Simulated assay, not measured.
Amino acid sequence: MVEKILFVSLALLALSILIALYRIIKGPSMPDRAVALDMIGVNLISAIAIISIVLKTRAFLEAILILGILAFISTIAISKYIERGVIIERKSDN
């Protein structure tokens, strides 16, 4: 019973990722695309955690941590680009 629930949740997460991918492609604005990209990161982390539970292993925990860090950094970079137009600010020599 628990495995069936886990597989259904994996299917729903995959559907959610596809919907977010559509929002990234057809999004009306850049903030919508940034939120959809962050949503894909969170859903991937959840899917990897469910796969780890199904396979009864802890081997994927490092991948979850790395993906979480990368998703956070990419969200910060995209929001900074939307706000200021650049990601890395450089001081110019005048």
Rank of each mutant, 00 (worst) to 15 (best):
residue 18 L to M: 15
residue 44 L to R: 01
residue 43 N to F: 04
residue 39 M to V: 09
residue 46 S to V: 12
residue 52 S to H: 05
residue 45 I to H: 02
residue 45 I to D: 02
residue 22 Y to V: 13
residue 50 I to M: 04
residue 56 K to Y: 09
residue 31 P to Q: 03
residue 29 S to M: 12
residue 49 A to Y: 02
residue 57 T to Y: 13
residue 43 N to G: 03
residue 36 A to C: 00
residue 18 L to K: 05
residue 43 N to D: 14
residue 22 Y to L: 12
residue 53 I to W: 10
residue 32 D to C: 06
residue 53 I to R: 04
residue 35 V to K: 03
residue 25 I to K: 10
residue 52 S to L: 01
residue 24 I to L: 11
residue 45 I to P: 03
residue 44 L to I: 08
residue 18 L to C: 15
residue 24 I to G: 09
residue 32 D to R: 08
residue 25 I to L: 11
residue 44 L to D: 01
residue 39 M to A: 10
residue 39 M to K: 15
residue 50 I to H: 05
residue 34 A to K: 06
residue 40 I to N: 02
residue 46 S to F: 09
residue 22 Y to Q: 09
residue 21 L to R: 00
residue 26 K to N: 13
residue 24 I to R: 07
residue 20 A to W: 01
residue 34 A to T: 14
residue 48 I to D: 06
residue 45 I to R: 00
residue 17 I to M: 14
residue 53 I to D: 05
residue 57 T to G: 11
residue 48 I to Y: 04
residue 30 M to W: 00
residue 55 L to N: 12
residue 36 A to Y: 02
residue 55 L to I: 13
residue 34 A to M: 07
residue 19 I to F: 14
residue 52 S to I: 07
residue 24 I to V: 15
residue 39 M to S: 13
residue 57 T to N: 14
residue 40 I to L: 01
residue 42 V to Q: 05
residue 54 V to N: 04
residue 29 S to N: 15
residue 49 A to D: 00
residue 41 G to T: 02
residue 34 A to R: 02
residue 32 D to G: 06
residue 39 M to H: 05
residue 38 D to F: 03
residue 28 P to S: 12
residue 53 I to H: 04
residue 21 L to N: 07
residue 44 L to M: 14
residue 55 L to R: 12
residue 45 I to M: 15
residue 46 S to D: 00
residue 50 I to G: 03
residue 46 S to E: 06
residue 50 I to T: 04
residue 28 P to Y: 10
residue 50 I to E: 03
residue 30 M to G: 00
residue 42 V to L: 10
residue 49 A to S: 08
residue 45 I to Q: 12
residue 50 I to P: 04
residue 57 T to F: 07
residue 56 K to C: 06
residue 38 D to A: 11
residue 30 M to V: 07
residue 56 K to V: 13
residue 44 L to Y: 02
residue 56 K to G: 00
